[in-house]
């Protein structure tokens, strides 16, 4: 057990120094075409419920990953932007510290983890998330027979009244690490792919270990285009974005 002194010293930023893995995701906004394949991929992988027309009207859709669409300019100089938005896995996550029951915390690999069966549903985390990427189970999610046959056995189905959110496909990370361990090696770059990164047709999403300086994500995160959303809030997200090009290259 650590001494009190040691334990006081532990700070969030040490993830990158003290752990083999620090997972990160880079999304190239210049590549995203808003096709929504990642949305369905995430839904299939993580047993994300559909809520139906009525609830969607109340903005209660559960997609862990959503594609935000922004429109700029006036006709005919209109520009549409897509912004895939999922849990940003902030190193200084606003959502974590406000949870009264430790239902969400930061794991040693830099992931913001939601523990469903601890959650009592105060929704404080949802209020404190500047990205609004935490979703609440307003009702019991409906997977009636025979639709339940599709459910991924690796991921639990959430009860009503708990928060859920993107886990960066925690189960895939674990499987990747298990496989690597079985084969007696470190996880290689590209071994682990969350469902969205796996499926993105344009290759806009890249996932990897940012502690590995040879990894793609490390290089991308250190390119000039890399930004964090709401950087001014100081959340230090593990999900980073690569800026798009200029609006009108021709003009």
């Amino acid at each position: 057990m650590r001494t009190l002194k040691e334990s006081i010293k532990v700070k969030s930023f040490n993830y990158k120094k003290h752990n083999d893995y620090s997972w990160s995701m880079i999304i190239d906004l210049d590549r995203c075409n808003g096709c929504g394949a990642c949305v369905i991929g995430c839904q299939a992988e993580n047993n994300v419920a559909t809520v139906g027309e009525e609830e969607v009207g109340k903005k209660r859709n559960m997609h862990w990953l959503r594609i935000e669409r922004y429109i700029e300019g006036e006709y005919p100089h209109v520009k549409v932007r897509f912004l895939p938005m999922m849990c940003q896995h902030c190193a200084q996550a606003p959502c974590e510290s406000v949870c009264p029951v430790y239902a969400t915390y930061h794991n040693p690999e830099g992931l913001n983890v939601q523990v469903y069966n601890r959650c009592i549903g105060t929704r404080f985390c949802g209020n404190n998330c500047p990205y609004s990427v935490r979703y609440f189970n307003w009702f019991d999610s409906s997977f009636p027979e025979p639709v339940n046959n599709q459910l991924n056995p690796d991921v639990s189905v959430r009860e009503r009244g708990v928060m859920e959110k993107c886990s960066l496909c925690m189960q895939r990370i674990r499987r990747g690490k298990d496989t690597a361990k079985d084969e007696g090696r470190e996880v290689q770059d590209g071994d682990i792919q969350p469902a969205c990164a796996q499926t993105c047709p344009t290759g806009a999403i890249t996932f990897g270990n940012i502690n590995d300086h040879e990894s793609k994500v490390y290089k991308m995160a250190h390119s000039g285009r890399a930004i964090s959303l709401f950087e001014e809030k100081g959340t230090h997200p593990a999900v980073k974005y690569l800026k798009g090009g200029t609006n009108d290259v021709i003009g």
């Binding site: 510290s97 406000v98 949870c99 009264p100 029951v101 430790y102 601890r118 959650c119 009592i120 549903g121 105060t122 929704r123 404080f124 609440f136 189970n137 009860e159 009503r160 009244g161 708990v162 928060m163």
Partner: peptide
């Protein structure tokens, strides 16, 4: 959301090893 689990907020030692977060 889960009224029946609201007692998780009470610092009751239990087998579930639940403990409230006093930073909240």
């Amino acid at each position: 959301g889960r009224l029946w689990r609201a007692y998780y907020m009470v610092p009751l030692p239990s087998q579930r090893m639940l403990w409230p977060n006093f930073k909240s």
